[in-house]
Nucleic acid binder design. Structure first.
Lengths: 146, 146
DNA sequence: ACACAAGTGTTGTATATACATCAAGGGGCG
DNA sequence: CGCCCCTTGATGTATATACAACACTTGTGT
């Protein structure tokens, strides 16, 4: 085999590795959160909303660096399940969203499983990996103020 | 605000950070590869296939740690575009796949853009980040022999 | 040979995500 | 006031991904 370009990609590609690690970490959290009927993407959207307080969807996209359309669809899921509500809207949709009482309670209820997944993820990444992840994310502006 | 559980998640969550970094890195490669009509997921599937040689789809799932169904659908895309072919199949589908001539040529053609994205990703991650990514992936068994 | 278990590919369904497009709103300017 | 542009939310389309269910293959044991 040993076709040169293919070897270079397999040997060095950062994307395949970052994506592999992302899938594994996501699976850790999603597995732990599964009894709650929430995914880690959903928990983080709820947490961002809880942190910044009632705001337009665009603000959440800014904070999490997600596309408008992604935020729109993920918010719909959470709204359908009653974890968030539109506190202002018009013909074109939600203008401002907020956690519901149920949503706040829900986040509190998932914390034990979230912490368990967080510990497993830290173990998977190792201390240098955890430090690097925090550092790179911080350089990318997450969290917003850090 | 400062609802305690929400603060803990925003402050510490490894998942939101790993996923954020994954989206950014993926966007770097996908943007660079876009003129070729390939995504980084597709390039890495082609590269894995080129590396291991003709093999059943399950082998690719093992190497890339992807679910069977994910491999199945991604292979279909590549087959429709002529980059891979089924060299053995039965009533239930592809039993063995291989790069086509066109697929081999294609991979060679994307290398300049792949290298450009690789440099940008290395810059985004920083030297410690790159080292951590390589180390963690290696501990997870990627690449298969390393 | 036969029956059953294990493995594998596909397909249905669901979420996460992005880009392009459309429609509605809001501001500024003549 | 009326018009244009920019922002923004939604929706169509596409890829990436996983889990569950189904179907076929294969291997194993008796």
């Amino acid at each position: 085999m040993t076709e040169v370009p293919v070897d270079e990609i397999v040997r060095d590609c950062l994307a395949v590795r970052v994506r592999l690690i992302g899938r594994a970490v996501t699976a850790l959290y999603d597995g732990a959160l599964e009894p709650h009927g929430l995914t880690v993407a959903q928990v983080n959207l709820l947490a961002a909303l809880g942190k910044v307080g009632p705001c337009p969807p665009s603000k959440l996209g800014e904070v999490l660096q997600l596309e408008r359309s992604t935020v729109s669809r993920n918010l719909n899921l959470l709204q359908n399940r009653g974890w968030i509500e539109a506190v202002a809207s018009d013909a074109k949709g939600m203008r401002e969203v907020a956690l519901t009482r149920a949503g706040q309670t829900k986040i509190r209820s998932v914390m034990p499983e979230w912490r368990q997944a967080q510990r497993q993820a830290a173990q998977l990444l190792g201390a240098p990996g955890v430090a690097a992840v925090q550092e790179v994310a911080s350089n990318m502006g997450y969290p917003p103020d850090a």
